[in-house]
Amino acid sequence: MLENEKRFNKIEGEVPENRINLFVNLIKEASSNLPGDVVKAIKAQKEKEEEGSQAKRALGIIIENFNLAYEKKTPICQDTGTVIFHIHYPIGMSVLKLKEELTLAVQEATKKGYLRPNAVDSISGKNSGDNCGFGSPSFYADEWEKDILEIKIMLKGGGCENVGAQYTLPDTKLEAGRDIKGVKKVILDAVVKAQGKGCAPGIIGVGIGGDRVSGALAAKNQIFRYLEDENLDNELAQIEKELYEKSNQLGIGPMGFGGKTTVLGVKCAKLHRVPASFFVSISYMCWAARRKTLEIKNNQFTIK
C-alpha cells in the first residue's frame, strides 16, 4: 500500500476561531488531493488498458501526477477552474458572513498558490488576480433540515467546462426523440463530441429536463456524487450503467489517445419540464475531478 493512501482519511478537528484558515485548508485539499473514488477508478482502469499503449502510459502519468500533487500540496491541475461552493445550512442560519469568509479564503488560497488567478473581466479582459469578481467565486446555498453546515467545493476546469453541452429534444440530426432513447443518444453524442478535449477520462453529469438554467445546474451537481453511488431511481440507474459501458466502447480513450477508458462515470438527474421544452444538459468533468466536502456540527469539522 502506498504511503500516501492516508490521503483518503477524513480530516477532523475543532473549528478554529478564525474559520478562514479552515476554508483555505478545504481549498488546498480540493486542489491537491484527488478524491478516493476517482483515484480508485483511474487505477482500476489503468489495469484494463493494453500493455505498452498510449492509454496505459497516459493513465500512468496521471497517477504519478496526483500522487506528486498530494505529497507536495500543489495543484493537481494548473487550471484550478471555477471555484464553486455549494452550501447546505441548518434552519435559521444566515450565510452572508460565511460567503464573505469563503471569499477571503479564496483570495488567500490564490496567494498561497493553491489556486491560479482565474477570474477575468469579460469586457476589459483584465484578470482580477485573486479569483474574485462578478459571480466569482460561485455560490449556491440551500437551507436544509439537518443541524449540519455542509460546504461542498468543486474546482471545475475550463477545458472540460467548454465541452459541456445542452441538447434540445427532438434533435433531428441525431434522430433523437422525446424519450429515453433520445436522451441516451444525446448523452453519447456529447461524449463523442468531447473526444479527449475535456481531459478524458471524464465524469459525465446529466440533467434531464428542467429549464436551461436548472437543467445545467442539476447536471453539474451530479458530479458531486461518488462514482460508486448508484442512482435510487431505477430508470436513471439503468441509463447511467448503460451509457458508462457504451461510452467506453467508443475507443476515444484517455486524452483521446485511443483506448478503453473514455469515461469514469455517468450520473443523471431528472427534473420536471414544461411541455414545450425538453432539454438534456451535459456537464463534463475532467479526470481531475476536484471536489471535497466540509461538514461543521457542534463546532467540530470534517473534511472528506
Binding site: A58, I61, I62, E64, N65, L68, A69, K72, T74, P75, I76, C77, Q78, D79, G157, G159, G196, C199, M255, F257, C286, W287, A288
Partner: peptide, 13 residues
C-alpha cells in the same frame, strides 16, 4: 505534440 492534460505537478517537475 500532446502532453497529458491535468498532469500539472508532474509537468512542473
Amino acid at each position: 505534440l500532446h502532453a497529458i492534460g491535468g498532469a500539472a505537478t508532474y509537468t512542473a517537475e
